[in-house]
Design a protein around this nucleic acid. Structure first.
Lengths: 255, 255
DNA sequence: CTTAACTCCGTATGCCTTACGGAAATACGT
DNA sequence: ACGTATTTCCGTAAGGCATACGGAGTTAAG
């Protein structure tokens, strides 16, 4: 990616023309960049990022492979456009209630988004493509915390904390769902296949806690785990911890 | 993967022979399964999982591509073996001190492991291959919580919480590191390339909080973020939250 | 009505996994 | 001692992938 592609991709993201206003000669484009982006999202929704290919996008648009490259510079830039598009899909509702409510809203918003488009978890991006919807998202996250008593730095740290935890939890949840779908094997079947072999191979009594806790969890969940419940439980602990940070400080401010 | 591969892979993981004790005829194997696993780890360490290929493993061993398949059933099974091998690399120290100390130890142990072998984050696995080192790891995680006053179910939930958060935070950290290494561009340079374009494209004053907090964070970190610090900060909040769960219950037990 | 600009796409390069089958090497059974 | 079953190593081929490059055809500007 050289500078030309950077300019080009930011133009596409912000739907603005910065350089030469693009000549009008030559054949009309058969589809629009938006259609390319939406086709890309459809492919990724259905098959995940590893199976996402430029050819499949082309097929879906009725174009041949190489024509797609006249709309977007390349695969990774298209993915950047898809991400920003998807962030803009659902309105960011105004924040309401106390801090606890606000943060819960932010975390669940992310959680739902990951489940709507699981491939978001497979996009490897520090240094994201900065688009209008991503920018609005960060602003919305910060707005949830504004006025609660955090320093600016703490606001950034808390946003990271929510994001990291939600990302980790969602990734567990989505992996479990995808594994079940793709393999066509339930957790119970999977365990039934492993148990007899493992019994022969493990030293009996070697893992007492795992046995006890694993059994308790297995009976409660009827599965290896319950990702929704883990997310809910973790979020409550996390909120307790964040509230405590403010409680421990506020008395000093008052005195 | 059919049942033959499951048996075979569990045999390899636990270094045990379950079925027929394998005949001794034919040419000797030129390398050992352990060498294959170590070669795989070396490739993954250097290039990451997406670039990890059976051919590169073969090259490193002085074998031709297809010979590797006489040692392990396939790519994903080899990755399973690599994961368990890597988990066994560093001893699990006995847990010491109070709950806070113990959980911190567990979380930092995971954090370090992810940084030692970043490709662990790219292994997509609910339903992991169950090997001896992974089993010992789960037992060790639970042992950190045993006796603190959790129910069995809570023990499982707290382990998930630590894991999810650490995974999310480590993934941010490693992505930042890898991006910097691969691109050869610092965060500052990256921002210097974007800023002038974004200024032209964003409505001025559209993102007041982002501007304020982003500037504060940028000045503090001299980078987009400080993943180590985020991890430390998040872990403290999380520990506060987990401790609170016990504090709120213990008085009832006493009364 | 020429020509510049643009779209669409064929081809080629160089990756990847893994199914299949053949050749060579080895040790067991007799 | 010798045939034969077994095993290893590997060549080939099928069916994927991104993208560089250049050519053919289409359209609008001058």
């Amino acid at each position: 990616m050289e500078n030309g592609d950077l300019d080009r991709t930011l133009e596409l993201l912000w739907r603005r023309t910065l350089g030469t206003p693009q000549g009008r000669r030559g054949p009309k484009q058969r589809v629009s960049v938006d259609e390319v982006i939406r086709a890309g999202i459809a492919v990724a929704d259905e098959e995940g990022l590893p199976a996402f290919s430029m050819r499949k996008v082309a097929d879906r648009l009725g174009l041949k492979l190489m024509s797609v490259y006249t709309y977007v510079p390349g695969r990774s830039e298209l993915i950047g456009l898809m991400v920003d598009e998807v962030i803009g899909e659902v309105e960011h509702p105004p924040h309401e209630g106390d801090l606890r409510n606000r943060i819960t809203g932010v975390a669940r918003h992310m959680w739902d988004e990951f489940h709507r488009h699981p491939w978001l978890l497979q996009v490897e991006s520090s240094r994201p493509w900065i688009g209008p919807n991503g920018s609005e998202r960060y602003e919305w996250h910060l707005a949830a915390l504004e006025g609660a008593g955090f320093t600016d730095l703490e606001m950034d740290l808390v946003v990271s904390l929510i994001g990291d935890f939600t990302k980790g939890a969602a990734s567990t949840s989505i992996l479990a769902r995808r594994t079940a779908e793709r393999s066509g094997i339930t957790d119970a079947d999977w365990w039934a296949m492993h148990a007899p072999i493992l019994e022969r191979v493990m030293t009996p009594g070697a893992y007492p806690l795992s046995g006890r806790v694993g059994t308790a969890a297995g009976e409660e969940y009827n599965a290896i785990g319950d990702p929704d419940r883990s997310f809910g439980f973790g979020l409550e602990r996390l909120l307790d911890g964040v509230e405590l940070l403010l409680k421990n400080r506020k008395p000093r401010d008052v005195s």
